[in-house]
Amino acid sequence: MRITRVRTHRVVLPLRETFVTALRRTDVVETLIVEVETDDGVIGLGEASQVWQVTGESMDGARACIEGPLSAVVIGRDPEDLQAVLRDVRGAVVGNTSAKAAVDVALHDLLARSRGLPLFRMLGGAVAAVETDVTLSVGDPDHLAASASARVSEGFRTLKVKVAADERQALRGIMAVRDAVGPDIAVRLDANQAWTDKQAIRVIGDLEDAGAGVEFVEQPVLARDVSALERVTRAVHTPVMADEAVFGIADLVEIIHRRAVDMINVKLAKCAGIAVATTLLDLARECGLGTIVGSMMESPVGVAASASVAAAHGTTAVSDLDAAWWIRGVSAALGYEAGSVVVSARPGLGIESIEELERVG
């Protein structure tokens, strides 16, 4: 079996409602799907999500990277020689983590399909369902409270509240969510780099004093400012999580060395795919850091891959895999039931074709 062709497809999927964070707002998932095909007709799918504010990659840039240097290192190769091919993919270009992740996932999907196994089983998982949080977009307290109540009524037991730079609004929003859902629902906070360290310490301290019961605070300060992350972590009791601050292994090693956070969020688009993601999860766990697996605003391709990693390797807290829930439409390969994302039992990611994916929207 040899890889003979690599193709890319631009896909736009409408969201059920506007998604708003401190970094951006969007009404669609705009993404690049890659197909890797072998000489016997087996096709694997992967995804390069376009999130300018996190990875810095554009759709056109990812396409050029995939169709150029990444294709050059995989065409003619045997996908059974997976780890060697993936090493060459990671070494082919600098950066471009989403593009690398797309090829990495497509190769994993292809191999799982050729073996007749769901990807989560090929990775060592036994259960197709992974509990996930659901995100509440940045909004006023009344909107957040109503959204929180609606999501709990749909079966979600963990809420991820997006907040912006306004400290007072953040406090009021979190307290409105807590009042709306009561003490038994987990509430976590994601600032997406919106605060300075002093702001973060004030807000988190006020939430602690108010008894808000926040599970953790994700990326409160700028990703590049590890010293600020460290100062926040040392000043508060609530666990602090790194997201944008940890792309790859070198980032995690620095975080561990400095004990800058309590937890990390591992995302395939940041770390260049499944191979590195599993290393990050193992290293964090061995060094006493909490873990979740997260997703960008991605299609069922990216979410199914991330959910397969979470199912196989486990995490210390509920993962963040609600991205496909936001998409208007239903995927045959991926569903949400009682607060969990459920991946298909079909081979690979369970998504048969680009056409099946486009029907979701």
Rank of each mutant, 00 (worst) to 15 (best):
L349W: 07
V54G: 00
A148S: 07
A275I: 05
V240A: 06
A312S: 04
T18C: 09
R24M: 14
R113V: 10
I264M: 03
D243W: 03
V214I: 14
A345K: 10
L222K: 15
D225V: 01
V11N: 12
S153M: 12
H143Y: 12
G124D: 04
A164H: 07
L283P: 00
L281I: 03
V34C: 12
A99T: 09
E208M: 08
T4H: 06
A338E: 15
D166Q: 03
H108E: 01
G294E: 07
A186S: 14
S340K: 15
I255P: 03
F156S: 06
D40S: 13
E355S: 15
T26I: 03
G56H: 08
V127F: 02
G205M: 02
F19I: 01
D184R: 06
A260V: 10
P347N: 11
T316Y: 13
A310W: 00
R7F: 10
P79G: 09
G91T: 04
W326Q: 12
M122K: 05
A333H: 04
Q193R: 14
W52P: 08
R172Q: 13
I66P: 01
A338K: 13
D133Q: 07
G68E: 11
R90E: 15
L334P: 10
T278L: 14
T26L: 08
R63G: 00
C65K: 07
T278N: 10
